[in-house]
Design a protein around this nucleic acid. Sequence first.
DNA 1: TAGACTATACAAGAATATTTGAAATATTGT
DNA 2: ACAATATTTCAAATATTCTTGTATAGTCTA
Lengths: 118, 118
Amino acid sequence: MDKQLATTLFESLASGIRLDIFRLLVKHAPSGLVAGEIATALALPPTNLSFHLKAMTYASLINVTQEGRYQRYRANLSVMQSLIDYLTAECCTGNPEHCFDSDKAASCCDSGPLLSST
Amino acid sequence: MDKQLATTLFESLASGIRLDIFRLLVKHAPSGLVAGEIATALALPPTNLSFHLKAMTYASLINVTQEGRYQRYRANLSVMQSLIDYLTAECCTGNPEHCFDSDKAASCCDSGPLLSST
DNA sequence: TAGACTATACAAGAATATTTGAAATATTGT
DNA sequence: ACAATATTTCAAATATTCTTGTATAGTCTA
């Protein structure tokens, strides 16, 4: 996770429409949805949806596979996880003990629960 | 954490400059930095920095306190934590068992480690 | 192959964000 | 009060993103 990817991912989430798309796909993980289902669910014109799906796919926030004439989209949950790691890792590079207030610090910077599985 | 706030926070992180600012402030938590120090560290013209600081402050991603003629900025780590919660909570609302692949699912959706402190 | 269906590519305009310098505000020190 | 310092506000130029319609490409069924 470098800065460029992180920025691109945040851009992908920084629009109400794209956030809706992502959340919809997360709710429908792991089967995903085809473009038409997303368009219906969110009441979006197909071209506009396609514009956002393309941006999100380029950012690797979602994945697409072809199914006949349909395009099936799925949330890329592992890159999302990496982004979360990237965000929280920051708080450990400097002064872990000061990162969050007491209890939060424990969950972020110790070998404890928060995002430290690897 | 509603959608509006989440979108605003993502917008705040969706620029290389603002991401740099945030990461810099996270590294300097909890003391923070005054505007001039940030401008020097990132080699930014003061007006441009001010523009971004204002946006980030409005989004509540950072906080500001006045110190004489200086403005001291600090990363708002708890709102960041809420944003992470918001992101990962999504994967639990639908099909937790399918959310991440096996091991990842455990860290995200069980009462286990990941972001489940509350 | 024809015809229907799904989705994307392209292009133009509308809307929004970014950057910068000049001016303004506020505080400190003499 | 005056000059110096720190930062913000404002306005204008530039750049980027978003939205939509039309046209295009691929796929399915008969």
